[in-house]
Design a protein around this nucleic acid. Structure first.
Length: 271
DNA sequence: AATGACACCAACCGCACTCAA
DNA sequence: TTTGAGTGCGGTTGGTGTCAT
């Protein structure tokens, strides 16, 4: 036996709320509160809405303590750290962010932070075992996409979501993504067939965190495994950070096809 | 200027839980 | 103890705006 619906869907208005409806709901709640019954509220308030819809509208939008506007880097960090510990417990995570709702946090994660962590996962996934330090590994964006990110312990880097979104697009767009960054260290000439990387680059600094590859123009989308010698990508590994080393670190700027020495961009410059 | 693709986010859906009767 | 109404919550959908072509 299925659960009975909370209201007759054919008799209630659905879709976006009008300013008049918002005002009616706000006025009613400020005068009377919910009286512990959202289901009965719309009829009392004179709204042709489902009680659940009224509750959602109030909790997610009309409440006076709701904070609208973009998330700060500090909020992003809290969300990522808590997601690592709790998973998609959005209400618990939102409770740590003053004025943010679970819906806000969930949307922000799904539209921005998940992609950021996905990008960060590239380097986490490339944190190869010590015995492979001098080897180059071949990976694919296909495998990156399917290798969900589980390690949020490393610091966030600045990002551009219009770039990160390119992961969902064909190789040529992925090329545009990687072209925004510096890849290091240099171990392959431009023009070879794979993006390569080395774990030795990963200890460099936060800026190398998502930059720690050596790269060239082509990406192999056909390797089903993606890791070193076709082994699975690694994840859930700590990423050592040493910001004092980076300034002298040789990088390859895939935009200009040139080597860059001692001039890694700062996180602010990348933003 | 028109069109399509995409990102964002408000809103909805339905299951799980709580608690009073 | 059982039942079911009310609520909380996470997943998903769909409308809208923006940008690229």
């Amino acid at each position: 036996m299925g659960r009975s619906p909370c209201c007759d869907k054919t008799k209630v208005k659905r879709g976006p709320w009008s300013p008049e409806e918002d005002a009616t709901l706000r006025d009613f709640l400020e005068k009377h509160g919910t009286a512990g019954n959202w289901i009965a509220l719309p009829q009392k308030a004179g709204l042709k809405r489902c009680g659940k819809s009224c509750r959602l509208r109030w909790l997610n939008y009309l409440r006076p303590d709701i904070k609208h506007g973009p998330f700060s880097p500090e909020e992003d960090e809290i969300i990522c750290n808590m997601y690592k510990k709790l998973g998609s417990r959005w209400s618990v995570i939102a409770a740590q962010l003053s004025g943010r709702t679970d819906n806000d946090v969930k949307n922000h994660w799904n539209t921005k932070l998940k992609k950021l962590q996905l990008a960060a996962n590239i380097t986490t996934a490339t944190n190869l075992p010590k015995e492979n330090n001098n080897d180059a590994a071949t990976i694919t964006l296909t495998s990156i996409k399917t290798s969900l990110f589980h390690d949020f312990s490393a610091p966030l880097m600045s990002y551009d979501d219009t770039i990160l979104d390119q992961f969902n697009t064909p190789p040529i767009m992925a090329k545009q993504y990687v072209s925004q960054y510096y890849f290091s260290p240099l171990s392959e000439p431009a023009g070879s067939s794979n993006i390569s990387l080395s774990s030795s680059s990963l200890a460099m600094d936060e800026r190398a965190y998502a930059l720690g590859w050596t790269g060239n123009n082509n990406i192999d989308f056909n390797n089903p495994n993606g890791g070193l010698n076709n082994t699975p990508l690694l994840d859930e590994q700590e990423l050592p950070i040493d910001p004092t080393i980076a300034p002298d670190f040789p990088c390859y700027d895939i935009c200009t096809q040139q080597t860059v020495l001692g001039s890694l961009p700062t996180a602010a410059e990348l933003a």
